[in-house]
Amino acid sequence: LYLDGVPVSRIQRAFSVGAFGLKDQRRLVPTRWSITAVDSMISKNLIEKEIKRKRPINEYRVYEFSYLGNRFVVLLTPSSWKYEWIEAWYPGTVWNPNSQEIAMGGDWEGYRGRTTYASIGGCYYAVRLAVAEFLAEEGRQAGVIAMREIHPSFITPLGVWINRESVREALRRRPVKFDSLDEAIDHISKRFSIRIDEWIRTSVLLKDALYQEKITKYL
């Protein structure tokens, strides 16, 4: 259905009302479960059958989009497929209402993917679908680190779709390109309110990339 051009939202609704499968085994599924299941299945298929067969990009790219008190930044790196999603919630936001500290968290996968459900929830798969669509359409492979900074002005939870659609919009825009990871990170540091060292501390892939870059300088 997806390859035939049926919108993801329609597939998710059909999945939710039990429109797929053998007639006597069909079940109603909570909407949020169906959304995540469809995002996960389609993105995994694109990654395995399209993206991993392509050449990596040859530069660092930074894409950006802001919407309703959310700032989204997507970093693409010249490497084989890997993916990470990180969120940072300011105090007073929906998922961090009582703390005085910024709450940050994320999850990631390497080239071989993952076998457990992402700890950060369905937003992980929603964004993975957005970036997988983009890379499959471009016919390239890349490492992906997608980040979201949520400010107190974002007061209404809108579901995981806001992440998918906002990252899609970011990737439609012209990226800023760099020759090195350090240059890309320096640019990102100027786009977020939260200090870049906090993003690096939270990110598995950024720490790994920075460490690997330092090692290769001595080879």
Score class of each variant (00 low, 15 high):
91 P>L: 06
92 G>L: 07
92 G>H: 04
95 W>Q: 13
95 W>H: 14
96 N>P: 09
96 N>W: 10
97 P>D: 12
98 N>T: 14
98 N>K: 15
99 S>C: 05
100 Q>V: 14
101 E>V: 14
101 E>S: 15
103 A>K: 13
105 G>T: 01
105 G>E: 06
106 G>E: 04
106 G>S: 08
107 D>W: 06
108 W>S: 13
108 W>K: 01
108 W>D: 01
112 R>P: 08
112 R>W: 15
113 G>V: 02
113 G>R: 04
114 R>T: 13
115 T>V: 15
116 T>E: 14
117 Y>N: 13
119 S>R: 15
120 I>L: 07
120 I>G: 08
121 G>T: 13
121 G>F: 03
121 G>P: 10
122 G>H: 03
123 C>T: 12
123 C>F: 07
124 Y>G: 05
124 Y>A: 07
125 Y>A: 04
125 Y>K: 02
126 A>K: 10
128 R>G: 10
128 R>F: 09
129 L>W: 00
131 V>W: 02
133 E>K: 04
134 F>M: 00
134 F>Y: 07
138 E>G: 07
138 E>L: 10
138 E>W: 06
140 R>W: 02
142 A>E: 02
146 A>D: 00
146 A>Q: 01
147 M>R: 01
147 M>P: 03
147 M>G: 09
148 R>H: 03
150 I>C: 09
152 P>Y: 06
153 S>Q: 15
153 S>P: 10
154 F>W: 15
157 P>T: 13
160 V>W: 01
160 V>P: 13
161 W>T: 09
162 I>R: 13
163 N>S: 15
163 N>P: 12
164 R>A: 08
165 E>N: 14
165 E>H: 08
168 R>Y: 02
168 R>D: 03
171 L>R: 00
172 R>E: 10
173 R>G: 05
176 V>K: 11
177 K>L: 13
178 F>P: 05
178 F>I: 07
179 D>S: 13
179 D>Q: 09
180 S>N: 05
180 S>W: 03
